[in-house]
Design a protein around this nucleic acid. Structure first.
Length: 439
RNA sequence: GUGGUUGUAGCUCAAUUGGUUAGAGCGCCGGACUGUGGCUCCGGAGGUUGCGGGUUCAAUUCCCGUCAGCCACCCCA
């Protein structure tokens, strides 16, 4: 048994890379539709840009080492610190709002499971410089439109949306103190996965009273806009949800309302979110989150020293690829070549090479048999390669100054003058492409 | 990092309460088929049964360890 890839790392065979390329193409195409520009940064960064934000305990989940210059470095586990640095460095010169996206490969040293590896690619889209609710709608809409571009409908993917400003208002009204908010968020985040008595015990240990604990569970159970509006009716700060509602209205106006579930159990694990938070899930909830993001208005100040409102999301390729395969939405295998050039006898081979290279110069993908196989075997290979046409060159054809152009799907063929091969291919029956979708 | 569970050709899976040479389909290579492909038929290559140890006359099968996958926890930047 030869060595294999490290746990959590992937070898991409051609058919798997095909899916990855499909995901990358789609990510770029949809981001472009929203006016986002692509950027990138180094995959290796100083360790402290990650510990500064998340504390030293994060080191256990990073790939770190000391480089030959004595620097503590880490393979990037996330893009946000790099993004914050880049934005901060040129903040004054960049026209706001900034719409940037990237597709970094990220690394984290953790026990892998389905949908969670030690290495993955992640679409990061961030919008900086706009505090208003339309920015939130733009970012959520972009995430949803990526799903739609893959052919995923509102029956297959759900966007669960909440807002930390709303959570804070409701929890405060229920008697949760400012200092206890973090514990309350954590309990809400786990509400669907953990048992209520355990969570209640943890909250109790954090100093919450019975009424406040009950309030936390009540908030975590809010689903849908009417339920949220009802809860807010009893709240002293009913206006806390105004931005969220404006964002939801905007998504409705875009025609994407069918994808949205107001779901107050969504808080996101990160401490730095300040407003809208959202996650995308497959409708059956059999997989991990496809995408997560939200508004982080204080983070650029903390990381980069520029005080700009911002929000964004990250969408990994692993869960997405699982979902596309489950739903039969992975692209059909592409044809390797458009045309296969077959030589009947060894004497025909130089002529086949000349024709093949003419086609290649003209931008047509073509292949010929390297091993002098019989014609039948060559055509078999042409078929396996998905070629739409074959060009057959034999002594008889050459004697007439011709080649045979065969339509492999239609099983028809016709002689073509040797010097008219290119024009015949261009004007004849369309070269078959098996690719569908993004071709 | 903790606990549970599963590991048999490239892939999907078989192998009678432990029994002799570990099989099949798909895929791959070749032949039937040296100027016409997808089908069919025939043949071939490909396995230290994840790895190591133990029990036994005998281990793919039972036990232990280890590695890897999966599930839950942790974490989810």
């Amino acid at each position: 048994m030869p060595s294999q890839a490290l746990p959590g790392f992937r070898d991409f065979y051609p058919d798997e890379l095909e899916l990855r390329a499909h995901i990358f193409r789609t990510w770029r195409e949809v981001a472009r539709r929203y006016g986002f520009e692509e950027y990138d940064g180094p995959p290796l960064e100083p360790l402290d840009i990650y510990t500064a934000k998340s504390g030293a305990e994060i080191v256990g989940q990073l790939y770190t080492f000391t480089d030959k210059g004595g620097r503590e470095v880490a393979l990037r586990p996330e893009m946000t610190p790099t993004f914050a640095r880049m934005v901060a460095a040129r903040a004054n010169g960049l026209r706001k709002p900034i719409r940037w996206f990237s597709m970094p490969q990220l690394f984290r040293y953790e026990r892998q499971q389905r949908g969670r590896l030690r290495e993955h690619f992640q679409l990061n889209c961030d919008l900086v410089g706009e505090p208003g609710p339309l920015a939130d709608a733009e970012v959520i809409a972009l995430a949803i439109d990526v799903m739609r571009a893959f052919g995923l409908t509102e029956h297959e993917v759900r966007a669960r949306v909440s807002d930390r400003r709303v959570l804070r208002s409701l929890l405060t009204a229920a008697g949760v103190s400012e200092a206890q908010l973090g514990d309350a968020y954590q309990a809400i985040d786990k509400a669907e996965r953990s048992r209520a008595p355990e969570l209640a015990a943890q909250l109790h240990a954090a100093g919450l009273g019975d009424a406040a604990i009950e309030g936390v569970f009540a908030v975590a159970a809010i689903r849908g806009r009417p339920a949220l509006e009802a809860a807010l009716a009893d709240s002293p700060d009913g206006g806390a949800a105004a931005p969220l509602f404006a964002t939801l209205d905007a998504l409705d106006a875009m025609g994407l309302g069918a994808y949205i579930d107001v779901d107050l159990s969504i808080v996101r694990g990160l401490a730095y979110y300040t407003g809208t938070v959202f996650e995308l899930f497959d409708a059956g909830r059999t997989l991990r989150a496809i995408c997560g993001g939200g508004r982080y208005d204080g983070l650029l100040l903390a990381l980069g020293g520029v005080d700009l409102p911002a929000l964004g999301f990250g969408m990994g390729d692993v869960v997405l690829a699982e979902l596309l395969k489950d739903r039969g939405l992975a692209p059909a295998p592409a044809a390797n070549v458009d045309v296969f050039v077959a030589a009947v006898t060894p004497e025909d081979v130089p002529h086949a090479l000349a024709v093949a290279h003419e086609l290649r110069d003209a931008g047509i993908a073509c292949e010929f048999a390297l091993g002098g196989q019989p014609l039948g075997r060559q055509l078999k290979l042409a078929d396996a390669r998905g070629a739409g046409r074959a060009i057959v060159i034999g002594p008889d054809d050459r004697a007439r100054g011709e080649v045979v152009v065969r339509d492999l799907a239609g099983k028809t063929q016709a002689p073509v003058r040797r010097d008219a091969v290119l024009t015949a291919l261009a004007s004849g029956a369309a070269v078959a492409h098996t690719r569908s979708g993004d071709g």
